[in-house]
Nucleic acid binder design. Structure first.
Lengths: 220, 220, 220, 220
DNA sequence: AATGAATGAGTCTTCATTCAT
DNA sequence: AATGAATGAAGACTCATTCAT
């Protein structure tokens, strides 16, 4: 279901320091920081395996090779661990949104868009378990909804900007931007989850084509 | 978050005899059928409110104005209630997939696609709580994943067929079909959840334009 | 430490219905009422044995021959069980306070006071575990303090009334009333806990003498 | 509830070398002695605030501005800290018991009793949190009960001695002594806890009058 | 002598499911 | 067919105590 190997790509530095939990007051020393990182990574692994509700604090603790009590030294509860992870993902994706290149029907534009989509797909694959769990937990704790909106706005606006430049007549750029985000997100999801069997280059090509094709009709 | 009023549109008949639970073997009299319907609808309402894991059998039972024990007279467990609901949705969506009109850049084609998308959006809005919960439960019980695949295949193939007719050079119809499904599904999601504020006609126009625009470049 | 046998004197009727917990909404049938009574009595027994903090919900449940979950069907938690018991005691003691006879240095007055003190002592012995635990829990939950004040006021006022009649010069009746209550309460406590070894008649005689003696100097 | 200011009156020296914990064997240097004192006082403050069971070692340690591990350098556990405090109180009260003046209906006797009661009240106010907590802990560890008995005996005997001198006919001096102790203790408790609103002089006068009045009927 | 981190046994509490009427 | 009561396994969380530095 989830390819644990890809977790190796996880850069611990990215995930820290993102919490405001019990540790907010304490200054962590090296040992503590290390433990916290182990817990964060264990969280990702476990959530990926069993989802949010399916994961027991016990699972996380075992994975992190820590004791039960230690967990609560760093996070008030499971929710807070997820929140820390979500915050990390949010930060990353917001940065990515800022780096969306100018959309234009030149070969340079094509290349850079394709590269960006590749990066998006990589990150998506990496953070999918978190995103997935995030949705799952949204019901319990609506602070998650807030975090998500930020990312949605950032990405949506970036695409809207591209659509504005293309200026297709009769199409609201904001709406078109959202449509493109929808396309990219879900298509990436379908490929990442193997719902469609397609090799990476083909999927990137198709996505690039559909995006630019819909914004800049080749006949122009 | 979820517009409870829209549940009034739910046709109980649609949700009915789709289960295979404890009742599969016995014939339900009028009273029993009525109770079962109440439970099914209560399930939707509760799942919509609190998600799958957040919903207690107790909540469902209260909403249905039935007693605790009664629930287990009709469903072996909570999963099975969801499964019944999911099956109903699946059936509906599969039918809808079959009715996707021929995609063509004529005004008739445009009209019929727009109408289909409107219907899809309606149904999506109606069944969103179920779809949502379905995703949530996927981790526990992978029989749900199977049901989802059926729908995915049906819809994806329908769009692929459209893409095949358009036959854009250098684009695999299957992949393009999936891309279109991705676009339609997620864009509808964004509008249904009000993540983007847009009136229904505009959203339908945009969606129609983007789909046909990407398949049939107007300059041809 | 605590003489379990005396619990046999406990009249279940007295202890019921005193709660406002989870059962507040439900109407209890015979079976439920029975269970609740078993839990209440088990509470007294266990609190008597191990004190409030020392008692585990598990202990209570075992004593009541009920299951763990059942407890929470009737009480939200341990505190609430104690509160129910405290309320019962309060009610009883308030009634008793109302029945304090007129204090007068006649042989009738002497007899009726002695009888009242005997009743007080009996009740004290019976409810001591609850009173004890009550004090213990006061720190956690200050609603207990309120309940206690009621009883204190009732008893204190009753004695003050007696002191007022005696009208010793230069002594505030309210203060004297409190002093008498103090005397009665703590002396009863000392005898009930065997801190002083004295037979019941002697202790009653002494108490009666000290009270009347201090209010009505025999030389008058 | 408890007037923290009065803790300022606490003389650290009084609380000191009464323990027999981990430190019993080692000689404490100035620094260690200071730390220990901080812990003892922190214990009083915390116990006063939250009671014995409600107080966490963590609370004490924070109040004392020491680290978690330090606590166990001085006390084997929480019980032992309380025991140290209880021992200190016991010592003080025993001394006080020894200083109870001769009870006699003269103005000198009256004065000296009143002065003693004033001192008792002061001490009671000061040590109430400890006494309180002591009762609370009695359930867990019956060594506490022993300590209490010593004090009870000392005070009770002192009053019995007074009663013996008065030699009221038909009243056992031992029992009467206990009754007087009961009166004094609980009345002081009621005033210390503001359960009765009365100024200090009045309460002392009343108490003195009641005691002497009951021992020496003025009409004699 | 002091400290921050770690530990894990011990409890409370929830809730899906079964039972007796 | 329906219901209120009972059950107990499963999990979250706390906190006294120990450990390594």
């Amino acid at each position: 279901m989830y390819d644990d190997e890809s977790l190796l790509e996880l850069d611990p530095v990215r995930l820290w320091p993102v919490t405001g939990g019990p540790t907010a007051e304490r200054a962590l020393r090296t040992r503590g920081r290390n433990t916290m990182n182990r817990l964060l990574r264990a969280g990702i692994v476990c959530f990926a395996r069993k989802g949010f509700h399916g994961t027991r604090v016990d699972d996380i603790v075992k994975e992190a090779e820590a004791s039960h009590g230690t967990f609560y030294l760093y996070f008030a509860n499971k929710d807070e661990l997820l929140e820390a992870l979500a915050r990390a993902v949010t930060a990353e994706l917001t940065v990515l949104a800022g780096s969306l290149p100018k959309l234009e029907p030149t070969s340079t534009g094509r290349e850079s868009l394709r590269a960006w989509l590749a990066e998006f797909a990589d990150m998506y694959r990496l953070y999918r378990p978190i995103l997935r769990v995030w949705t799952e937990a949204e019901n319990d704790n609506n602070s998650f909804g807030q975090i998500g909106n930020t990312v949605f706005q950032a990405l949506s606006s970036a695409f809207a900007e591209g659509a504005r430049v293309a200026a297709s007549p009769g199409v609201d750029p904001e709406v078109a931007g959202t449509a493109l985000l929808a396309l990219v997100e879900r298509f990436t999801y379908f490929t990442a989850t193997n719902q469609i069997r397609v090799d990476v280059p083909t999927s990137l090509d198709t996505l690039t084509s559909v995006i630019l094709g819909s914004l800049f009709p080749p006949g122009d």
